[in-house]
Design a protein around this nucleic acid. Sequence first.
RNA 1: GUGGCCAUAGUUUAAUGGUAAAACAUCGGGUUGUGGUUCCGACGUUACGGGUUCAAUUCCCGUUGGCCACC
Length: 401
Amino acid sequence: MVYLELKMKESIDMFELLDQQKTLRTGVIHTLHGDLYSPFFMPVATKGSIRGISPNEMLTEVQSQILLMNTYHLYLRPGYEKVRKLGGLHTFTTWPKPILTDSGGYQVFSLSKIRKLTEEGAEFRSHIDGSKHMLTPEESIRTQYYLGSDIIMVLDECPPGGSSRAYIQKSLELTTRWARRCREELDRLCEADGRQAGERPLLFGIVQGGIYEDLRKESLAQLQEIGFDGYAIGGVSVGESRSDVLKVIQWIAPLLPSDKPRYLMGLGKPEEIVYAAFLGIDMFDCVIPTREARHGTVYTWKSADKEGDVHRYLDALEETSQQAKLPAESFFDIVRIQNEKHEYDMTPIDCYADWKGADQYGKAYIRHLFQVKEHVALEYLSRHNLYFYLEMMQYIRSYKS
RNA sequence: GUGGCCAUAGUUUAAUGGUAAAACAUCGGGUUGUGGUUCCGACGUUACGGGUUCAAUUCCCGUUGGCCACC
């Protein structure tokens, strides 16, 4: 009884709700490597680094609170045993703040050539050397645990957008069985290492169910029965229409436990993040700011009153989010650096950006560097988009209705 | 001066007596739990003038331009 009370208290303390404005909430998550103020965005450091930006710069300049790293990639290279010997990801990469790792499942499905899905796990061949591997729920958890992750994700199956209702139902049940095995494996590892509550990494479950409201609810109920430190919405924006994506978020976000962090996996565009944050999502990750930057697309502010623009967008969401729609007026613009109209334009990419170096180069020069494939241009644009995203999150957190 | 070879997209090259193809470049768009150089689309009066033919980028003659060899 005392133990149960202690356990309940612990799980409540791990996440604290600080404030709520309409359906938008701000909070703090306590992890083994410090506190995270939500809503926040997690830049994707696939193999232990954001492409072209050092961990030190992410810490001191970009000032990200957390990085996401990919278990699939780190499992294959350098492998978790090597990372463990080197002191874990934080020591290895010199990144001192929290790290969230994914389960590796998503990449097994999207990258590896041959795969076979069984009750036991996902069999796949490495995209690097073709070697055969078996990713089970237990192996995924062991890998994330020994990498030294602060927030561990369960292994799940993420069916593509067009999957049938019958398949999605079967799939989410498998995901639940895997989630239970993940829970048990992490508990076992922590107990073996004598870790008390509060000394353990957090484990998040993943709600599946595609575009079906009842299946989403069923998936969530099954996961809650097992019990997790946080709940993620998975299987979103994997091929469905934009309106379906918005609908799924609108349905499921309010149903996620309010005393636990809520994580929307893999999204999204700036307006989608503001939309989901308004509906009560706390955590985000997406490759868009860095991948689009490498392909020449950057997000820029519309006016000098950046914070006001984001807040007005949030105001407008009170109406539109009820119909699962986005407000008509945006708070940002898109610049494609390769466009010819920038050929003689010596003004900065974003005259309202105020990160160090944002006004250093004119568009004409960046465009030139981009066209001749100078890596420095890709890094500059990645840096710009990451600053944009993190600044946007800051304005979401400062919202008062 | 004589002989030979060549001329196709911005560039480098295909092809065929019957609506000209690719790569790269250029231009425009895409990218949502990252295979670092990605994906999709657009862009041509086949050097010029004549001839043969139902039909010529293709065959013939000439013009212009380029390359090679010889004197």
